[in-house]
Design a protein around this nucleic acid. Structure first.
Lengths: 238, 238
DNA sequence: ACAAAACAAGAGCACTGCTCTCGAATGTTG
DNA sequence: CAACATTCGAGAGCAGTGCTCTTGTTTTGT
């Protein structure tokens, strides 16, 4: 069934991307909660009902933007990591990647809110978006496990105090086995510590963007660097 | 100017609380983004325009709910801390308070979203709500500084790796001086570590509630306990 | 008893997501 | 090429939202 793209198919693709681009601009300026399908329609010079030929609903449009934003953030993080020439300098890779995540988030606060804010969409749709969502954390895990493979880059993590991570993070360990294809499983303590670190990065950026650190932190950039370096230490890095 | 409360004043108070109660029910069921002033009006048997006699706008209503929710969460946290009979068992106090924060959040996910989710209101209003917002973190700081005053409850925190917290957390230190009235300032490293811990608690709860740990963490309760105990260790607690 | 203030109700405006219908443009097939 | 089918854009319309204004009623202070 090899058929040349008809004019209609080409037009459909162009208009679809046109709509998505206008929607991203609207998202960047108005935020996810105020994203109006009618406003997007006006931006592309169409009437609102015509847009429904290309987008099933507002939620689907938000989901498409969600995937795009996840991808953009993931690409930014990976590019920052790849930019470190000395691949054995895992500490520099960790720092660069975390900084890239914050930089993108500060530069795209509304996109960040769509990704990591309170979900505006029901819980049905965003579940098939786990793929692009995991790009950042997967890369971070790669850096951390590299550090624990390279001699002298990290001290082995002793079992932390309190209840072990072992019973609760089994799913994450299995997921890592799938995606990273490691020969040996990442120990539960390291998996838990990695989840903790990622939660802290998210919490720090969210607090900064949502204004929860107003009156407490003055220089967010150096504060973030302080946090990131201590996280690296808590992960066993040297 | 001692005047007995007229019938109208009593009615106004009653109707106001009636509206707020209905709004909280709506918030609990529909979430902050879907809170409709008209729906609240219907619930209390009024027409929407009548509600505007009591509430200036939807944003002001959300702000009122915000303050109420902050207060409820703060009370829950403080009650949990106060419930620990041995006041020198600072580790138990820390654990109980953190658990209370998570319990309230899991029990009131939509209220939690209003407090700590991406802000639905503009940045003007919520800034005069910093008072009730700080109750939890203030109590947590109290527990941590108690631990560092009691001999043997905590080891002094060595300066962490990377950039010092000193230049970025000065405002927080000053704020603590105000609210807690401590004789000597909390050292920057401890202030920074406390902010980090609070960010991690927030990040962990948010990830759980917003579904970012689906496929990674199976038992959220024990996972949270694992996180909290490691945070206590990172804060210098023993 | 009367003027002033507060109130509840209704209509109305501008906006939203979404559905349906109706011609027109474009596609495929005989 | 002609006929039929599909796709598309525009418009009207529905139900819902926040919010304002007017109108008539009730309560208050004088």
């Amino acid at each position: 069934m090899e058929h040349t793209r008809t004019a209609r198919e080409r037009a459909r693709e162009e208009i679809t991307t046109e709509i998505l681009e206008a929607a991203r601009r609207r998202l960047a300026s108005d935020g996810p909660a105020n994203l109006s399908l009618r406003a997007v329609a006006r931006d592309v010079g169409m009437v609102s009902s015509a847009v429904y030929r290309y987008v099933p609903s507002r939620d689907d449009l938000l989901t498409a933007l969600l995937v795009e934003a996840y991808d953009e953030l993931g690409a930014a993080a990976e590019a920052a990591d790849d930019g470190v020439s000395d691949r054995t300098d895992v500490r520099a890779r960790w720092t660069a990647t975390c900084r890239a995540v914050r930089s993108w988030s500060v530069g795209h606060p509304h996109d960040y809110a769509l990704l990591y804010g309170s979900p505006v969409i029901g819980y049905a749709a965003p579940r098939d978006t786990v793929g692009p969502a995991t790009r950042v954390i997967v890369r971070l895990v790669g850096i951390i496990s590299s550090a624990h493979e390279i001699g002298g880059a990290a001290r082995p993590l002793p079992e932390g105090p309190g209840p072990s991570f072992e019973p609760s993070v089994g799913d994450a360990t299995a997921a890592l086995r799938e995606v990273a294809g490691l020969d040996t499983d990442v120990p539960p303590e390291l998996v838990g510590r990695t989840l903790m670190a990622w939660s802290t990065v998210f919490g720090t950026i969210s607090f900064e963007l949502w204004g929860h650190l107003v009156g407490s932190v003055s220089d967010h950039e150096t504060y973030f660097d302080s946090v990131v370096s201590r996280l690296w230490h808590d992960l066993g890095g040297v």
